[in-house]
Write a protein that binds this DNA or RNA. Sequence first.
DNA 1: CCTGCTACCTGATGGC
DNA 2: TGCCATCAGGTAGCAG
Length: 274
Amino acid sequence: MPEAPEVEAIAITLRALVRGRRISRVRVRHAIGVKPQTAGLLNRSVSSARISDVERRGKYLLLALDRGCVSMHFKFDGQLVWFDGPADALKRNVHWDVGFEFEDGMLGFVDPRHLGRVHWLARPEDSSGIKALGVDAFSPQFTFSEFNEICRVRPRPLKMLLTDQTRIAGVGNIYSAEALWHARLSPFRRSDRLTAAEARKLHKAVVSVLARALECCLNPPPDFRNSQWWFTGLEKILRVYDREGLPCRRCGSKIRRVEQSGRSTYFCAHCQRP
DNA sequence: CCTGCTACCTGATGGC
DNA sequence: TGCCATCAGGTAGCAG
């Protein structure tokens, strides 16, 4: 599920919990979670490694180790849960896929749907997905002039540009819809035909939508000890996403949902003009 | 190279 | 109630 704000909130919260600490070993309960790697490789590479930092790249979470790093991608449903230890994890009736054991507990990567992945990498760029990431939407390099250039690279609908991780890293289906609504631009508008003023408005909308979402994701922060935890209150900040048939909060006309490259796009056909 | 489509998975939900 | 279809905040991999 998570886009950059959710992963960033997870990174910030997890950093305070595990930075500087040693992973004693890795338990893989569902091998699909480390595919195409193996439990053995992950355990060999990570056992007794110290976590120097926790980082985010786009929607990837990285545990930087003194030997390489662990990358995690949550895809739609992945999350992290803290257990008192392996025995606690087995005793509680909670699905978990990969466990990182510490002296006093175990961090579990949890994804019943099994689309999420945990990998060990010698360097982050050894992951083709990470290597291909464009400018991170939260980084200082994501300036208006950078965004404006990205818009002109080639003609494509704004929705496709915003969610293309190789151009702008971290924006997904929800926050692209939200930013386009705030900027009053149709998801179908050709990115290369925006006026400079429109591009500026859209850039501002992306930045502010993500900032507001991050603040929401940190208040309250993730509670890894509660296996049921998930971000609350995001519905309150959403203006169009998942509001098909409901009145636009700006002009009152019905929000529409259409398919764009196989994904749902929500927009107001009245105030988001093509 | 680039682009667009499908596969990958499981669970929740809604209509009949 | 049961069954079936549809939907889900994403990316990797492959064909063209």
